[in-house]
Design a protein around this nucleic acid. Sequence first.
DNA 1: TTGAATACCTTGTATCGCAAGGTACTGAAA
DNA 2: TTTCAGTACCTTGCGATACAAGGTATTCAA
Lengths: 100, 100
Amino acid sequence: MRKGMLEYCIMLLLRHQPCYANDIIQRLHEAEMIVMEGTLYPLLSRLKRDGILGYEWRESTQGPPRKYYILTDEGQEALAQLDANWEEILRTVNILKLEE
Amino acid sequence: MRKGMLEYCIMLLLRHQPCYANDIIQRLHEAEMIVMEGTLYPLLSRLKRDGILGYEWRESTQGPPRKYYILTDEGQEALAQLDANWEEILRTVNILKLEE
DNA sequence: TTGAATACCTTGTATCGCAAGGTACTGAAA
DNA sequence: TTTCAGTACCTTGCGATACAAGGTATTCAA
């Protein structure tokens, strides 16, 4: 059921501050959503390719450098559309739950 | 984004009264969710095969007989689980939307 | 210089939803 | 009585998403 929600959640997460993959996994985990590495990396690459996300390399104190992703302006517009979709799904489920 | 939501919505719809395919399409449409025939029929067949749904044939005043589906007892239990999943997704999105 | 930790990425598989097309029953018009 | 439009059910092929498993590369300390 979480299918398709991941992209929305990641865009919400990256709308204000940049994160690299392990940040994202951890912060989603804190928000009670589990995501696998093998799911996340291809998704980030796709969103970058589509212009939704940008990234910059940053040095790490320990280990190799990290790719910090953040939402682009185009991504902000796409996020507004997803917000609308989410509201629609909320309405649908609420209507169905209230029906007898 | 609606991926995986369809199954939940259909189970909500069939928890109280039986419907056949066109009923389901129309009632989901009223709840602002569009679903195609080619999506619905395989999904109903799968849920039947998994014991989530049952059906009975009913004569129609016009046209061929209809398959009226309804949620089984096992389906009610599965629905309770999906309700819990849905609440979790609500929590996740709310947490992410409130973050700065 | 070797190994553990960290980080990024790829490949193969399963599932879901859609578009397109097909089968079958009914009743009314030609 | 034959034909046709309407209704209802179903299948096949395709693209997209998520996961499991495995692979590559960098860093630092033993």
